[in-house]
Every structure is written in C-alpha cells, then in structure tokens.
Design a protein around this nucleic acid. Structure first.
Lengths: 123, 123
DNA sequence: CTAGAACCTGACGTTGACGTCAGGTGCAAG
DNA sequence: CTTGCACCTGACGTCAACGTCAGGTTCTAG
C-alpha cells in the first residue's frame, strides 16, 4: 500500500504518517523511486498510535511502549515495564479527573434543565 | 491574598495565574500600587480551571462554561447548554479511549509478568 | 509518450499554555 | 533610607502534532 491509501483507511492525514515515520513510530519500505509502501498491518498500527495520542500519552512514552504494545512481545526490560506501570497510574488518574469533570457537567446540565431541584451538592 | 500565595496554595505558577486573568478566567482586584489581590475563593477556582484543562477541554470552552460551573448559576442560555452537552459527549469519548488504553497496558504488563499465560486475545 | 494524480523533500506556520528574561516598581523590615 | 523580596508589564521562546506551501519526481492511465 502507498501512503495515501493507508492515510485514508486509518483516517489520518498523509502528513501525519510522514510525521510518525520521522518520530520512529512507523517504518515504511521504499519503492525504487523512493516512494513509501506499507504492509497491511500499518493501518492497525496507525489506529493504535491515534488511540494512544487520544488518551493523552506524551509522544516519548508512545515511542517507548509502542513496540511492546502492538507486537505483544515480552522482550520488555524491567525498566520499561516500570515506565508502563507508571503510565498506567497516570492514565488512571486522568480517568478519575475526567469522571469528575463529567459529573460536574452533568450537575450543571441537570440543574439548568430542572431548576426546581435545588443544588443539593452546593450544601 | 497576593498572587504568590494563591499560586502556592493552588499548586500552579504565578505566570499561569496572570495567564488565566489575561484569558478572562480569573478576575483579580488591584492594590493602589497595582498589585493583584485575590479572594480566598480564588484557590478553588484555580483548581477547577486546572481540572477542566486536565480533562482536555479547550480554553474557549473553559471560558464559556466556567462561570456556569462554579457559580451554579442557571442563567445558561440553551446554546451554551448544547455546548456543554456536546462537551460531555467528548469527555465520555475520552474516558472510553483511556479505558481501552489502560486495558492494553494491563495486558502487556500482565503478559510480561507471567509469560506462561499465553496471549489469548492475540488469538 | 504524455497528462495528471499521487508522491517526494525541505522548511516555515499554527495553536495552547504557559516559561523565561529584561527592566522597572511596591512594600514591609531594620 | 536602604535593602531586598515579591510583584509589575511587555515580549520573545518552547514543545507537540501536525498544516501548508514550494518546487521537483514517480507512477499509472490512455
């Protein structure tokens, strides 16, 4: 597959794919003329990258955990495992934050829709 | 309170507080000499701002929902409510993404810790 | 063979949430 | 009155994840 097809299938821009390669997140073979070509697995990998980014993981972390996460390899040195465990904690924290924010939004929306029920949580 | 004290209590930089004021997120009174002074409630408000930012809400959205969220006011026009509902959906999506990422991390960590249990999910 | 779509490599532009530096001021203490 | 720390206002720097433009090349269809 060439870059445009991968981009379309994965739902990202061509620029993004070149950026991922630049960052060492996604390798590509080259045709004799110099054009990139990707294996079919690239689409899934790109989706994974997007998912990690969407979760707010910093790129250096993505770069580190990616080979491990998508290959299922067990080669991970203990230091990397610690990193991943630490990142798990951070992800958990973010989830907690998001849940709190969601509850706040819900409160405000509920009160606005039904002003009669007073703000019990405001004491 | 002066700016330094608020910054310390809320766990943010002085620069951040000036930035919030610049963005219309946090008002401050001024001493005759021009120095900002804040009411005690400022600390909580700053924590709220941080929470919203941490949840990934864009600043323009924070700017819009903030007066509503922290005052509990019901003045919100319907358009703002729609915005907040839409934002709620986005927050929900982020939570879903994060849960998926957390599961992935857990898988990898579990496999690495106990290689005997094969990767059932990799089929 | 030729048009034109898709691709290539730089390289500079963008946005958000501040960091940081420069140069000057407010204010409480001794 | 002077020291000195906290504060002030610009204003430029930063980093990430690309967007976008310029100018040239490759590949595919007819």
């Amino acid at each position: 597959m060439r870059i445009g097809e991968v981009a379309e299938k994965a739902g990202v821009s061509v620029r993004a794919l070149r950026y991922y390669e630049e960052q060492g997140l996604l390798q590509a073979g080259r045709s004799p003329g110099g054009q990139r070509h990707y294996p079919d697995t690239a689409v899934g990998r790109v989706r994974l990258i997007q998912q990690l980014y969407a979760a707010g993981l910093p790129s250096r972390v993505v770069r580190k955990v990616l080979p491990c996460v998508d290959s299922g390899e067990v080669k991970a040195p203990p230091a990397l495992l610690d990193q991943m465990a630490a990142e798990r904690v951070r992800v958990d924290q973010r989830i907690t934050d998001l849940l709190a924010v969601r509850d706040r939004l819900d409160d405000v929306i509920a009160v606005a829709r039904d002003p009669d029920s007073d703000c019990s949580h405001v004491e």
